[in-house]
Write a protein that binds this DNA or RNA. Structure first.
Lengths: 147, 147
DNA sequence: ACTAATTATGTGTATATGCACTTATTATGG
DNA sequence: CCATAATAAGTGCATATACACATAATTAGT
């Protein structure tokens, strides 16, 4: 099936396909916490950043600013994060609430075996290579990235 | 930053992040065709399958059946695909229209340099490894896959 | 023939995603 | 000071995604 290789090796298709499959796996694992995959990622990044303005969080997530803006809504409704005006009125500072910190720890326990499924299924070497290549791909996709 | 490695190496987060970044890159490239990334992938799969029922197409795409169902709507509105009852009334056969076939060729020309950006940016070896590892990840994520 | 299981698909609802456009605020140049 | 740039964030719209639930048709079991 040589003639199909150019098509079936599409970077975008393969990434989106893997993203769909893995998201479903992780969301099944996280289900008891009530968090979706993206919500867990957003909470983890905020946990690592402490308190940060929306734009900065969006850049770390490599997520559109307006997408993050809307992704924060359910988290705010669940009382897991707090959005407050920062030093300047136009800046919105985001931080975890106490329930948010507890939820992160709860979800991290559910996350661990799901993550192990892939680190062990691929093996340490290939898994590390995968993450490295994903980061290079992100750099290549970004404006002026990795030319 | 050893304490962050377990978090920042999350399979799901890294895949979704790369998926977002690469999708934007390909959609910018495909923009003249008026196709989104997913639409291009769906059309390519249908082009390869000739005529096939929805469920089968969904399995090849590793996409939820109901997601594909809705993804077909804009393609049908654009007159790029045809959805018709098959041998059995309950089966919906999907195939490309003549404009659909032309659109695939048009978009494939736009796709090529975008794809080259990543095959060349990573290098043939690492790129092939990436695709292989993505397929292994998909297998691991699927029920009863690659145990 | 009738009922139960299986198969193929659609709908309701909710989150995710990003572009174009808008609003508000701060910084900069004259 | 005031006009303009630049910065930070929100809204309207369209597509993408999938689970729970509903519908319809075919097949299997009795």
């Amino acid at each position: 099936m040589k003639q199909r290789s150019a098509d079936s090796a599409c970077t975008c298709f393969n990434l989106r396909k893997a993203s769909r499959a893995v998201t479903q796996y992780f969301e099944a694992a996280l289900e008891p916490s009530g968090l979706k995959a993206t919500q867990f990622s957003v909470l983890m990044v905020i946990a690592n950043m402490g308190t940060a303005p929306m734009g900065k969080v969006a850049r770390v997530l490599v997520m559109d600013r307006t997408t993050l803006s809307r992704n924060l809504r359910p988290l705010e409704k669940m009382n897991l994060i707090r959005v407050r005006p920062g030093d300047y009125p136009r800046v919105r500072e985001i931080s975890l609430t106490a329930p948010g910190r507890r939820k992160v720890e709860e979800a991290r326990k559910l996350w661990k075996p799901a993550q192990a499924r892939f680190t062990e299924g691929l093996g340490g070497g290939p898994f590390a290579a995968l993450i490295k290549n994903l980061n290079r791909v992100v750099a290549l996709a970004q404006p002026g990235g990795g030319d």
